[in-house]
Every structure is written in structure tokens, then in C-alpha cells.
Computed example of a mutant assay.
Amino acid sequence: MKTNAKKSSEAGFSLAKSKFYNEFLAEREEILKHKWIESEKAGHDIGFERALLDWVVNHRDKWRAARKVAK
């Protein structure tokens, strides 16, 4: 594992600079917020998978469109 990390850093690759990784982190944060809100409404933890599916079906497209406009 350490050799792969070393090779990546030698090639100048930085996960922190990756557009795709940063988009993944932003999307994950939105899903976690959604999980918290929906869990509060339900009165119990709804779980990540349920929150993920609900967010993707009901909110992802609008969220992505809003991010695209903001950039």
C-alpha cells in the first residue's frame, strides 16, 4: 500500500486537488445532511443507505444543477 501512495505522490497526483474527489466529498456531505434531517423527522436514525437512495432520487439533479450554475 505504501508503495502505491509513494508512486502517486511522485507522479504529482493529489487526491485533495482532484475535482472528482472533491465533488464526491461535497455530495457525501449533502447526503449526510439529508440523513440527519430525515432522521429527525422520523424520530430515529434512517441509515445511510436509505438517505442516499432518497437523496439521489429526490434531490441530486437539482443539487448538481445548482452547483453547475454557481461555478
Rank of each mutant, 00 (worst) to 15 (best):
N22C: 00
E10A: 14
L25M: 02
R50K: 06
S14Q: 08
E23I: 01
S39V: 04
K2L: 13
E27P: 06
R28W: 06
V57R: 10
E10S: 14
L53E: 10
K35G: 01
M1S: 15
H44V: 04
M1G: 15
R67N: 12
E27G: 04
L52C: 10
E23C: 03
L52T: 13
T3H: 15
W63V: 07
I46R: 09
G47V: 01
M1N: 14
A5Q: 07
A70Y: 02
A65W: 08
L52A: 11
F24T: 14
E30C: 12
A11H: 06
A16C: 04
A26L: 07
K41G: 09
S9I: 11
D45K: 01
D54T: 08
K19P: 13
A5V: 04
D54F: 10
Y21D: 11
R64Q: 08
R28P: 02
M1C: 15
L32A: 03
A51H: 01
G12S: 07
V57C: 05
K19M: 10
W63P: 15
W55K: 03
R64A: 10
R64T: 04
H44P: 08
I31K: 01
H34M: 00
S18G: 04
A66G: 06
D54R: 09
W55M: 09
A26S: 14
K35M: 15
D61V: 10
K62R: 00
E23Y: 03
D45A: 01
K62L: 14
A65M: 05
R64C: 10
A51V: 01
D54M: 08
N58H: 08
K7C: 11
A42C: 14
A26E: 05
S8K: 06
G43N: 14
D45E: 05
K6F: 04
A65N: 11
N22I: 01
R67L: 14
K17D: 15
D45M: 03
K71D: 15
A26P: 02
W63Q: 11
F48E: 12
G43F: 13
S14M: 09
L52N: 14
A26Q: 06
S39W: 04
R28V: 07
K6W: 04
N22E: 00
Y21G: 01
F20W: 06
R64P: 10
S9C: 08
L32Q: 08
E30H: 10
F20K: 04
I37Y: 15
E38V: 05
W63T: 13
K2M: 07
S9V: 04
S9P: 00
K33N: 10
K6A: 14
K71N: 15
D61R: 06
E30T: 00
N4R: 14
K68A: 14
D61I: 07
L15A: 13
W55G: 02
D54N: 08
V69D: 09
F24W: 08
R28T: 05
S14V: 01
F24M: 04
N58G: 10
A11V: 12
H44F: 12
L53N: 06
E49H: 00
Y21V: 12
A26V: 14
R64N: 15
A5C: 09
K68L: 06
K17A: 12
E29K: 04
E49G: 02
